[in-house]
Deep mutational scan, measured.
Amino acid sequence: PKDEAKKKVKEAIKRGDEETAKRIAKKYNLDWDDAKREADEER
């Protein structure tokens, strides 16, 4: 599900692992900028 994928993307971003985050986002066709902004807001 997309929500689960987005959570994984945000967790990867918070760990500083943007490569993984981008790969997950691409795989699930998520909006990378959107997920990154959300992760930054939660930090």
Rank of each mutant, 00 (worst) to 15 (best):
Lys14Glu: 10
Val9Phe: 11
Lys8Arg: 14
Lys36Trp: 12
Ala21Trp: 00
Ala25Arg: 02
Ala5Glu: 04
Thr20Ser: 07
Lys14His: 12
Asp17Pro: 01
Arg23Trp: 10
Gly16Ile: 01
Lys7Ala: 12
Ala35Met: 15
Lys10Ala: 10
Lys7Cys: 14
Ile13Phe: 07
Trp32Ser: 02
Asp34Asn: 10
Ala39Pro: 03
Lys8Asp: 05
Leu30Asp: 00
Ala12Met: 12
Lys7Glu: 11
Ala5Asn: 04
Asp3Cys: 13
Glu42Asn: 07
Ala35Pro: 02
Ala25Cys: 14
Lys6Val: 10
Tyr28His: 06
Glu41His: 09
Ala12Trp: 10
Asp31Val: 05
Glu11Trp: 06
Lys6Tyr: 15
Arg43Leu: 15
Ala25Met: 02
Asp17Arg: 03
Asp3Lys: 08
Asp3His: 11
Ala5Thr: 03
Glu42Arg: 04
Gly16Thr: 01
Lys7His: 09
Leu30Pro: 00
Glu38Arg: 03
Arg15Glu: 05
Asp3Ser: 12
Val9Arg: 00
Asp3Val: 11
Glu19Asn: 06
Ala39Gly: 04
Lys10Thr: 07
Ile24Arg: 01
Leu30Cys: 13
Leu30Lys: 00
Arg15Met: 10
Arg37Val: 06
Asn29Arg: 04
Lys8Asn: 06
Asp34Arg: 07
Ala35His: 03
Glu11Asp: 13
Arg37Gly: 05
Lys22Arg: 15
Lys6Ala: 08
Arg37Asp: 05
Ile24His: 01
Glu4Trp: 15
Lys36Leu: 14
Asp31Gln: 05
Asn29Trp: 03
Gly16Ser: 02
Arg15Cys: 12
Asp31His: 04
Arg23Leu: 13
Asp33Gln: 09
Lys6Phe: 15
Lys14Ile: 13
Glu41Ser: 11
Lys27Tyr: 14
Glu19His: 06
Pro1Thr: 14
Arg15Val: 05
Lys10Glu: 05
Ala25Gln: 01
Ile13Cys: 02
Asp34Phe: 08
Lys14Phe: 13
Leu30Phe: 03
Leu30His: 01
Ile24Phe: 04
Arg43Ile: 14
Glu11Gln: 08
Lys22Ile: 08
Arg15Ala: 11
Glu38Asn: 05
Lys2Val: 14
Lys2Asp: 11
Lys36His: 05
Lys26Asp: 08
Tyr28Trp: 09
Asp34His: 06
Asp40Leu: 13
Ile24Met: 09
Lys6Arg: 14
Arg37Trp: 07
Asp34Ile: 11
Ala25Leu: 02
Trp32Glu: 02
Asp17Gln: 04
Thr20Cys: 13
Glu38Thr: 05
Asn29Lys: 08
Ala21Val: 00
Leu30Thr: 01
Glu11Lys: 03
Ala5Asp: 02
Glu4Ala: 12
Glu18Ser: 06
Arg23Cys: 14
Glu38Phe: 06
Trp32Val: 03
Tyr28Cys: 04
Thr20Glu: 15
Ala25Phe: 01
Lys2Phe: 14
Arg23Asn: 09
Leu30Met: 05
Asp40Gln: 10
Asp40Arg: 07
Glu11Pro: 00
Lys8Tyr: 12
